[in-house]
Each structure stands twice: as structure tokens, then as C-alpha cells.
């Protein structure tokens, strides 16, 4: 645009955009400190006396540190996956557990367990990722067929798809006598996270970097195919990219931790409620709160019936479904 239009008197151009961001920074810092405190608590929560016992330091390094790192990576992965899925589907109620993505990852895992019981963790991870990607793409294809973009139809379709895949997994497990494996998987938990087992989760960092780089593409895609095309963006390619990144994150988390429901739903929605939907500036918040939510729920699960543990997925399920219902009710009242 030409500069002939006069800028409103005396307002320097530069301060217009970041003005609102200034207020957010200390809050983000505070939130990060709060989450850091949770993580420290996670390091020192458990039955084994890591400070007093002779091999305490060893136990600390083998179980507590991996568990806490896994909390961070898995929480961030699921929260960010939900954020990206919500952008790509233009729907607030979508996340890997309401699109069938998680169930597909589970089916992939089960298939490996049956077909190649001795497969390495990398092979299992690869299969889970491919299965997640296939499942996510199937969801997007189905979504394109239904023109009913009513906000609730979309997650219902996803949950139905997921239920079909989950039912098939159950049948397969029943037929091959591996039902126990499936039920352990569905109850996603950090109990069995230890050194030598959790390392694939570091792949999540690659996904996070990918999402940061492509953040604006996802924001544009979130405005729909026409707006994306208008600014010269290939909408299909962005959807593929997003589905791929989400599949990697979901697949890896599925292999190491299992099913973590509602994280991708609750966190991005809470963040969007306060901050709107600019993906790039929301990402730090979504990561911090995703980690915080998973860490808090894991801590609750560890202390509530100590010395035993409740799977984190159970705690997340309770917290998540409450938030989900609140969102539905509030949304209806507003609409």
C-alpha cells in the first residue's frame, strides 16, 4: 500500500503490535516457575527414598529423572498436537483422542506386538507413527465429505471413528490373547517410564521445532482453504504437514506412555480463551500449561492412593471431561 494514507497523528508504527505482549511476559514466567516447581515435586515424589538410601542417586537417575522428562515431553506433545489439529479442522473440540489418531496409534502398536513380538522400540514407534498418520488422514478425508461443519459433529465423527478402530483393536487383542497389553496401553501412565525406555520421546522436540517454524502456516490454514489459497498457501500441503507432525507426536507418546486423553483439548482451549488464536504467540503458553497439566495430574495419581498409583490417564480423564463439559455449556450459553 502506498504511504499516502496518513498514520494517526504521532503514533510510531513500531509500538502498535507488541504493546499487548508486554503484559503477558511476566505471567508466562510465573506460569513456567509454577510448572518448574511441579516438576521438582515430581522428582522427589515416590516411595523410594532417593535422598537417604545408598543407591538413591542411582534410582533418581534411572526412574525419577526419566519420568519427569517424559512428563515434560509428553505433555508438550499432546497439548501442541491438539492445538494444531484444532487449527487445521477449524474446530475447538478436536484433539488426537477425539479424531481417532490415538486409537490408530494403539492399533499400530498392537499389530507390531502380534506380528513381531521382538521388534525394537524404534520399529514399534515407526509403525505407531505411520498408523497415526493414516488414521489422521482418514479423519480429514471423512471430514471433507461431510459438509456439516457444526462444531459438535466433527468430534463426534472422530470419536466414532476412534471407537471403531478401538473395537477392532480389542477384537484383535481378544483373538490373539493380548487383551492385557491393550488395557495397559489404554491406561496411559508414567509408572513404567525408566532409563533406556523413554528416550524416543526426545523426537517430540523435533515436532515442536517443526510446529514453531510452520506456526503461521497453521494459523492461515485455520482461516480456511479460501483464505489460505488467497495468500498463496497450498492448504492440502499444510494439512499433510500438520497431520504428519501430530502423528509423530501422538505415535511416540503412544509407544512410551500410552493414551493421554484431553490434554490437547483442555490446554489450547484455555489458552485461546484468554489469548485468542495466534498460534505463534500461544505456543509457549500451550507448552507450559500442557506440561503443567500432565505433571499435576501425574502427581495426583501418585499420591492419592500411595503407595500405589492411579494411571495419569484416569486423572486426566476426570479433569478433562469436566473442562470439556464446561466448555460445551458455556459455548451453548454464548451461542
Amino acid at each position: 500500500m502506498s504511504t499516502t494514507t496518513a498514520r494517526t497523528a504521532g503514533t510510531p508504527d513500531a509500538d502498535a503490535a507488541p504493546a499487548r505482549r508486554r503484559r503477558g511476559v511476566p505471567w508466562l514466567l510465573l506460569a513456567s516457575l509454577g510448572v518448574a516447581a511441579l516438576l521438582v515435586a515430581s522428582l522427589f515424589t515416590g516411595q523410594y527414598d532417593v535422598v537417604g538410601a545408598d543407591d538413591g542417586a542411582w534410582m533418581f537417575a534411572v526412574t525419577r529423572v526419566p519420568r519427569t522428562v517424559a512428563l515434560v515431553l509428553a505433555g508438550a506433545a499432546m497439548a501442541v498436537s491438539g492445538l494444531v489439529m484444532q487449527m487445521l479442522t477449524q474446530n475447538r473440540f478436536v484433539e488426537p483422542t477425539t479424531t481417532g489418531t490415538t486409537e490408530w496409534a494403539g492399533l499400530g502398536l498392537l499389530a507390531v506386538t502380534i506380528l513381531a513380538p521382538t521388534a525394537s522400540i524404534m520399529t514399534r514407534m515407526g509403525v505407531a507413527i505411520v498408523a497415526s498418520f493414516v488414521g489422521t488422514m482418514i479423519f480429514f478425508l471423512v471430514l471433507r465429505r461431510i459438509t456439516l461443519t457444526s462444531s459438535l459433529v466433527v468430534p463426534v465423527v472422530g470419536i466414532m471413528l476412534g471407537a471403531v478402530v478401538g473395537a477392532f483393536s480389542s477384537y484383535l487383542a481378544l483373538a490373539t490373547n493380548s487383551l492385557q497389553y491393550v488395557s495397559v496401553w489404554f491406561a496411559g501412565s508414567f509408572t513404567s517410564v525408566f532409563r533406556g525406555q523413554y528416550e524416543p520421546l526426545w523426537v517430540v522436540l523435533v515436532v515442536l521445532v517443526g510446529i514453531v517454524v510452520a506456526a503461521d502456516r497453521f494459523t492461515v490454514a485455520g482461516l480456511g482453504r479460501d483464505v489460505a489459497t488467497n495468500v498463496g498457501l497450498n492448504h492440502d500441503r499444510v494439512v499433510m504437514l500438520g497431520a504428519g507432525l501430530v502423528a509423530v507426536a501422538t505415535g511416540v507418546v503412544a509407544v512410551v506412555v500410552g493414551n493421554l486423553p484431553f490434554v490437547g483439548l483442555v490446554v489450547p482451549n484455555v489458552v485461546a480463551l484468554r489469548r485468542g488464536d495466534d498460534l505463534r504467540s500461544n505456543l509457549p503458553w500451550v507448552v507450559v500449561l500442557g506440561v503443567g497439566l500432565v505433571a499435576a495430574c501425574d502427581l495426583v495419581g501418585r499420591v492419592i492412593i500411595a503407595p500405589f498409583e492411579v494411571p495419569v490417564s484416569l486423572v486426566l480423564g476426570v479433569v478433562g471431561s469436566l473442562v470439556f463439559i464446561t466448555m460445551l455449556v458455556r459455548g451453548r450459553r454464548r451461542g
Binding site: 502498535a16 499487548r20 477449524q90 474446530n91 503461521d216 485468542g276 488464536d277
Partner: peptide
């Protein structure tokens, strides 16, 4: 569905 500010939208 996306909640953007006017400035963020125009920026796109």
C-alpha cells in the same frame, strides 16, 4: 472459528 485480533488478521 479462529480468534484473532484485527491486527493479527490483517498481518496475515
Amino acid at each position: 472459528v479462529t480468534r484473532l485480533t484485527v491486527r493479527q488478521l490483517v498481518g496475515l
